[in-house]
């Protein structure tokens, strides 16, 4: 008698999932996502858009930090590049949004080569500090390159129309981000299962061994930077469409930390984890707000005056708690639950 889970053909090995149940639930989730704007209010849809943008950014960072093992504290910089490129091309050069959005990703990818080159010699903490430095430098260049970026004044972003539909309005923006998210997640899943993804994982697990096996470190590290930054740049462009006003203050350091918090929370290296983490952290401020509104009547004033601090503390607590109690993240938690479910009543 056969027991357990066997794969008998190579086709089954490369399939995204061989489980009908998984496909069924993914389809259900997608249908729910498509139907959501008709069922939810405007505010909830806006929230969903932010959450989806966070998903895109997290999947991008996850490629670099989770899959390739290159720690980046410079996400805010790449987001800023994407957002500014999109805003400048749209508003100052009159590009249509379907061109300027990918252009933002491309410019972010090109700039990431600059960051990537030092990374060829550096690992771990040193790389984290370099990317941090690059994010600062990018922010300051944006601040002082006034003729191009309008410096401290920021840029208003409006009129993102495709075929007469204003992409910055509720539902249209929602479907744009949803579509991009699905594309990005699919692309990431496929890259991770390909030669490139396996090379990245080899670099993460042991770079010297990877080099010995014939993985070209220079090429694959730079590729990781470029692909990741391309996705993050597109997330930046979407942010500029959503908030309608890009200013350098939007892209503060806390954003980089938030991004890292997301992928740690979700589980490093896992795309499903990145998605879960992004959704969790995006809705966390809302939960905190609801908590303050329901349980603390007098301190709602306290909440509004310290909203950033409270949010920061929540991120910090989430990072510390997960690293300490569940380093595999939400996805690890999910695996545990699944194991428990399928093995019950046995422990193993």
């Amino acid at each position: 008698m056969r027991t357990g889970h066997f794969k008998e053909a190579t086709g089954q090995l490369v399939a995204l999932s061989d489980s009908r149940v998984v496909w069924f639930f993914v389809a259900l989730l997608l249908a729910a996502c498509v139907a959501a704007p008709f069922l939810l209010g405007n505010y909830q849809v806006t929230l969903m858009v932010s959450a989806l943008i966070a998903v895109i950014g997290a999947v991008g960072l996850n490629m670099l930090t989770g899959t390739t093992g290159l720690i980046s504290l410079g996400q805010a910089g790449f987001l800023a590049v994407g957002a500014y490129t999109n805003a400048i091309l749209m508003m100052d050069y009159g590009w249509p949004v379907w061109l300027s959005l990918p252009a933002g990703g491309l410019v972010a990818a090109l700039i990431s080569i600059l960051v990537g080159v030092p990374s060829l010699r550096l690992k771990g903490l040193y790389l984290a500090i370099t990317t941090l430095a690059f994010a600062f430098i990018i922010n300051h260049i944006i601040l002082y390159a006034e003729p191009l970026t309008h410096g401290p004044n920021g840029i208003f972003v409006s009129g993102a129309k495709v075929l007469g539909v204003d992409l910055q309005r509720g539902k249209a923006l929602y479907y744009l981000t949803l579509g991009t998210t699905v594309l990005v997640v699919l692309a990431a899943l496929n890259i991770q299962r390909s030669r490139v993804g396996r090379a990245w994982m080899a670099i993460r697990d042991h770079d010297i061994a990877a080099r010995v096996m014939g993985v070209d470190l220079v090429r694959y590290k730079l590729l990781a930077f470029m692909v990741s930054s391309f996705i993050v740049g597109i997330a930046g462009g979407l942010i500029s469409l959503q908030i309608r006003f890009v200013n350098i203050d939007v892209f503060a350091l806390i954003l980089s930390i938030e991004a890292l918090a997301i992928i740690i929370l979700g589980g490093l290296g896992s795309i499903a984890g990145a998605v879960l983490g992004a959704l969790f952290l995006s809705f966390l401020p809302e939960v905190i707000r609801l908590f303050f509104e329901t349980f603390a009547d007098s301190s709602s004033n306290f909440y509004t005056s310290y909203v950033y601090e409270i949010r920061g503390i929540a991120y910090g607590v989430v990072i510390v708690a997960f690293l300490r109690l569940k380093p595999e993240g939400l996805i690890g938690l999910w695996r545990d639950i699944r194991k428990y479910w399928s093995n019950w009543p046995l422990a193993y």
Partner: peptide, 12 residues
């Protein structure tokens, strides 16, 4: 990363 988390907590 714990120190990063600690940093935002202390700051807040």
């Amino acid at each position: 990363m714990v120190t990063v988390g600690l940093a935002v907590i202390l700051r807040g």
